[in-house]
Design a protein around this nucleic acid. Structure first.
Lengths: 157, 157
DNA sequence: TATTGTTATACTCTATAACTATA
DNA sequence: TATAGTTATAGAGTATAACAATA
């Protein structure tokens, strides 16, 4: 046995988490420079590219629950990157609009994160990166298709 | 543009986290059946396969900081899966030993997690899974090689 | 009755700083 | 003084339950 965690490394799930956990620390640093977190950057990206979005759409696009969006949007608003305007057609909802500053910060943060993102896949060919993306998407799809089916019960030991 | 998060999906980091986050929820469920969390399962695996391990070795092998190991080992000990015996050659350290129950629970949990782990990569060929593992390892390696070098400064905007 | 946003709360994973008891 | 384990604390990411306002 070469490595202490040989058995764990047979599990795709273990490798996924270990790699992701390591890589996310790197992205945290990049975004922190812009006063952002990974989630606020992701939200800002969507708001810049789809102005007028609702918070619930944001939640669905980012695949996180609505309550988690509140703090994210509050942060972006307080930082002056996003404005919440009451939607004219539905007074319950907010239309999320990027400010000019928000667009600028987004562009800068994106420009800084792109080389970091490329750096983490250094040594992989474009084809290999594409294959990685495809594999990751497939896993996500598999889990949503299978795991969401809470009909099926894991047998108790 | 097909998808709201088109730009985010150009980033390997975004896909990594999104997929991992989704998949980990699935693993949480499996391990919960055995009274385990992902981290306690990982620790139990190492202790079963390398009896006598120290907590600091555990921390290094799992790539997490030592303070985080304490709660993990306490949990395993309270569940009767692991014993902490004072190392005879160093009274500061513990030799971590799996109990008979610990070995049994490990075997059962592993047997249950393996099909789930295979299920998340359903539709991928063994070669594609191997390529995925290689890519993930490479990313982890890249980040440790690059990001650990805190000599280099991200320029302030 | 259903949906939008919200509050309150909690759990997991992880990190840093500073302590203790050995070595 | 350095190391093994510990305590205390914090922060990020995520989830669920229940509520108000509006549809």
């Amino acid at each position: 046995m070469r490595c202490l965690d040989h058995t764990l490394r047979t599990l795709t799930g273990y490798r996924l988490q270990r790699t992701t956990s390591t890589a996310m620390a790197e992205f945290n640093r990049v975004f922190a420079v812009h006063g952002l977190r990974r989630t606020t950057f992701a939200a800002l990206t969507l708001i810049v590219e789809t102005p007028g979005m609702r918070q619930s759409q944001l939640a669905e696009a980012l695949a996180i629950e609505r309550p988690n969006i509140v703090q994210i949007v509050v942060e972006l608003e307080q930082a002056g990157l996003v404005e919440r305007k009451t939607a004219k057609d539905d007074r319950r909802a907010y239309a999320l609009q990027p400010t000019a500053t928000g667009r600028r910060v987004f562009e800068r943060a994106l420009a800084q994160v792109q080389p970091v993102d490329r750096a983490i896949t250094a040594g992989l060919t474009p084809d290999q990166v594409a294959a990685l993306h495809k594999a990751l998407d497939r896993i996500e799809w598999n889990v949503r298709a299978t795991g969401a089916a809470d009909d099926f019960e894991v047998p108790r030991p």
